[in-house]
Design a protein around this nucleic acid. Structure first.
Lengths: 327, 327
DNA sequence: ATGAAAGCGCTAACAC
DNA sequence: GTGTTAGCGCTTTCAT
């Protein structure tokens, strides 16, 4: 029976005032050791849990972190967010926060949702994903000094785009992939990416290009597919293979899957994201430490939420290569 | 500037009392038409949003629906929950609810989380997924008369296991798949499923078996793989193919993927769930209307939350067949 | 149809 | 170190 135990009940049973119970929970150092212990026991025994709504009214803190969930394109990339979300929920719970979900068809609607949420549920912070050049969401939040962290670097030159972020070093991932291909004896290693301008895509391409350069090779075999789709990976791969390329580094598993479809057994292919599809078809892929990324987000948020002047902090995580049949 | 507009501000600007504003929102029929309109205008103009915490304290309703998020096995099935979650968030928002996430390693921990959540954030309802025989979670919630809906039928004979649920007719899905294979001329259609005892798996097998029976064929080509994994699909398929089967209906995309790996181009394969992987490899698969399922869950919950004595209601949705190269 | 008063559970100030 | 007071924003009686 966990029925509505209030702080008054705890105080009565423990034989102290309500305030002492509150202090035991929120400012333990101000309560005498013996009292503290006793109160804690009663709390345990009664199964008391502080009511969030009441606490929120008084403190203005909801202990809620909001994040957008969207069905990612072909669903392949979607699983990345899925895994990140799980890690986020877990890390947040450990830090005493819960995750609140919302959707939005585009960035401007998302801002409208910010306003809605802030006025009603009052989340303490937001986690942004898929940030991009000139992201209106970050500027909106920054202007209002609302706490948030971005999963993804701010791909922008704007000086005020300084905010906490967590990201995975994409270039390091494609570098590892390229190195492996080179070590396996491949001399013509191509890259399939997206059109230039996307920070994430450019970063991944850079890792490939710089590794070839280090080996005194020129980054000739480059193909920019259109948007992230299997069909685009197929046509891009066809072009490069006709060019004499024998190994392919791809900016995503979707593109890699397309490459795999048109590549013979001797062609090596490496994808990016290590999505479930990669495991299913035996595709070697760059793996992102999503659980760690989520934990880092929560850590940064907790820090920003506790100190008045949040220090801008960044965390850049290193990916690893999950090796399978394809390379 | 959307800074803390309270009901008092609206009342002052509109020249009415606070209650009239509250009534306009919660009992519109009790307010005179002209007043109502005016108040609504002021609300809009001021960007007022009722504070949830305050409302919750008074009414005891949080307008929060909680659901567990877990990284599903090989991640392939995980994308099903992902899509469902998105639909749920969207439908819930339309009904004035938000989705709160939590994790739990097992069913018993999940019950502990119920208690925790109920004592602090007080979600109005829970959405359960992956219900199974003798599910302790449903009985726990039922005993305490806590509102919840299960996505998945209660696969149990227990008479008190009566609660709202939404599900997709798995048997109808495998029936459609089997019919298509038969129509394409296949005479030996096998089935790859899981060990008996799982409600979901048994249901999907039943659809295949009854369709063969209708055609006067015996359901000989049956193979029960172990748990849901590609490797198990491979070995099961090998056995059946050696037996002379030319087409395979599978209980999941994971199993189907395994079948595809060992099947020649003339063998037809149909998966289940229409996950992103299916699209990627050209696998025909049974598609579940996840968005509709989510909407139905919210509808059932909203009904249960509004009437005192919640009528147990069920919704059984029909799947469709997404046809691709594999069949 | 509209207004006044009370109180949900909690914690920041301030007294003791 | 502990108890008392007040009030966060809202809605539910009850009076007008």
């Amino acid at each position: 029976m966990a029925d509505k135990v209030t702080i008054t009940d705890v105080a009565r049973v423990a034989g102290v005032s309500r305030q002492t119970v509150s202090n035991t929970l929120n400012s333990p150092e101000v309560v005498r050791e013996a009292t503290r212990r006793h109160v804690l026991e009663v709390i345990e025994q009664l199964g008391y849990r502080a009511n969030q709504a009441a606490r929120q009214m008084r403190t203005g803190r909801s202990r809620l972190i909001a994040i957008r969930i969207d069905p990612g394109g072909d669903g392949i990339a979607g699983s990345v967010l899925d895994r990140f979300l799980h890690g986020l929920t877990e890390s947040a719970a450990q830090a005493g926060y819960r995750i609140l979900l919302y959707t939005a068809p585009d960035d401007h609607s998302e801002i409208a949702t910010f306003e809605d949420l802030l006025g009603s549920y009052e989340p303490d912070a937001f986690v942004l994903t898929g940030t991009h050049h000139g992201d209106v969401r970050t500027s909106w939040l920054l202007e209002r000094r609302l706490p948030f962290v971005a999963f993804g670097r701010p791909w922008s030159e704007m000086p005020d785009a300084r905010h906490p972020w967590v990201d995975v070093d994409g270039a390091a991932g494609t570098e590892a992939a390229t190195r492996r291909l080179l070590a396996a004896g491949h001399r013509r290693v191509g890259f399939i990416g997206w059109p230039p301008g996307s920070g994430v895509g450019d970063d991944r391409r850079a890792g490939w290009a710089r590794t070839l350069a280090e080996h005194g090779m020129d980054a000739g075999g480059l193909s920019r597919a259109g948007e992230d789709a299997i069909a685009n990976g197929e046509s891009a791969a066809r072009d490069l293979l006709a060019d004499g390329v024998t190994a392919l580094v791809c900016a995503s598993d979707s593109l890699a899957l397309g490459a795999l479809n048109v590549a013979g057994p001797d062609v090596a292919v490496v994808g990016f994201d290590d999505t479930p599809v990669a495991g299913a078809v035996g595709l070697t892929s760059v793996h992102q430490p999503l659980g760690q990324a989520a934990a880092a987000c929560v850590k940064l948020l907790a820090r920003a939420l506790d100190s008045t002047e949040p220090p801008t902090t960044h965390v850049l995580l290193q990916p690893s290569l999950t090796v399978r049949r394809s390379a």
